[in-house]
Write a protein that binds this DNA or RNA. Structure first.
Lengths: 221, 221
DNA sequence: GATAGTTTCATACAATAGTTTGAAATGCAA
DNA sequence: TTGCATTTCAAACTATTGTATGAAACTATC
């Protein structure tokens, strides 16, 4: 046992392929070919294709959350009793954006895979995602503490929108680049993070229109 | 020919199934079973599975864009020479959110399918999506005209973030509901739209911090 | 009502999927 | 070395996939 080279070769190959193509498009034979191992190795080491996917997802999710929490704790420590909301948002957005748009290719695959997993709900992953929202709860709690006077509803919506912008920026950066005619600089990772943090910060702390007045287009004028 | 009941039965059944499950998880046999038609009917009427998917996507995308453009034109007409940016954003966000979170079940499936299609990039759809960003360009142009003094980059990012929030709200409304302990009211469609419009409006028109200097929310004047 | 054209149907086909198998190869302790 | 457990391998297996086929059922025109 020990290093289990085959195991990790399969994991990284699967991650690489899943980062590019859809789950349904990647077969076990594709994975083992990329990993340079035998077909039966997957079932030997992981039991089944679904279990491979589950373990891969769990491993990467843990790594991502670890990094997020580290930044969150650092921000809370730096802020003393009163943590800045934007620092919390930065801990949420920073790691995945850096992983994905940054220079590090290895992590890019990880982030892309994670994003696909969060979107393309396939049974083995769905179970894990649905069950585990504890990491989000932790960020929600931190934001509540940082903004005690704000309505809880705004906190949750702000968090929701922050996740939205992170995800979209990772998955659809190409469309943005194309649409803007290369005007939007997707290499300046820090600027992107700050932009997301800025908008999410507004979502958290601004007064939003109540139910009554806005009205739909059809009833408008 | 005439009504072609079988054809549309297949289309709506496929839409329904694709709205719930991933593309890879839905087989032709699932579709024809749900539609109550023979297996061979798909190939007879559409040629292949991919062509069915492409036609379905094109049809729904056209319907969604038609509705968006109608609202956009109405907003531009109402605004005279100077269209309100928020009205433009409302034309972008209103239709899909109403389709998906509103009472109409039929359209809910359409919107959910569209969202999956925009995320889960499968070859037959990918080709269409990559080729056609003209509808987005139309919204970008409208926003540029409405905000001539603003930096184009902010326009594109604002549009990008608006799409992000729309998508996330459609796909992950359940998680938001759960995370907030039912505090976030996902039945109040108009309030949701206004919230998205509000935040996207900020993204469009606010000054965002450059790379080096992360600014706080309060620096906005 | 016969006929030509369209649509539906049960069924078969070839390809690919994930999984299993049992033998060969390998690593390691005695 | 021998012996035993682990790991790898080529091959086969079963199920499911999208697609193709040809006969049957239907529709409408003459």
């Amino acid at each position: 046992m020990s290093t289990d080279l085959t195991r990790s070769a399969i994991l990284t190959a699967a991650e690489q392929l899943y980062a590019e193509r859809s789950f349904g498009e990647v077969s076990l034979r594709d994975i083992v070919a990329a990993a340079g191992v035998n077909l039966a190795a997957v079932n030997y080491h992981f039991g089944s294709k679904d279990e491979l996917l589950a373990e891969l997802f769990l491993s990467r999710a843990t790594a991502l959350n670890r990094e997020r929490f580290a930044e969150l704790k650092a921000a809370e420590a730096a802020g003393g009793g009163r943590t800045e909301p934007r620092a919390i948002l930065r801990a949420l957005a920073g790691p995945p954006i850096r992983w994905c748009l940054g220079a590090d290719r290895q992590r890019s695959a990880a982030a892309r895979f994670m994003t696909r997993a969060s979107v393309e709900t396939v049974p083995p992953i769905r179970k894990i995602v649905e069950r585990d929202i504890s990491h989000l709860r932790r960020f929600a709690d931190a934001l509540r503490r940082a903004l005690p006077e704000r309505d809880e509803v705004d906190i949750y919506w702000g968090l929701h929108f922050a996740l939205a912008m992170i995800r979209q920026t990772i998955t659809d950066s190409n469309r943005l680049r194309k649409l803007s005619g290369d005007l939007c600089d997707l290499d300046d990772v820090d600027a992107i993070i700050e932009r997301i943090v800025s908008v999410a910060g507004f979502a958290l702390s601004a007064q939003h229109a109540p139910t009554g007045q806005p009205a739909t287009v059809s009833t408008r004028r």
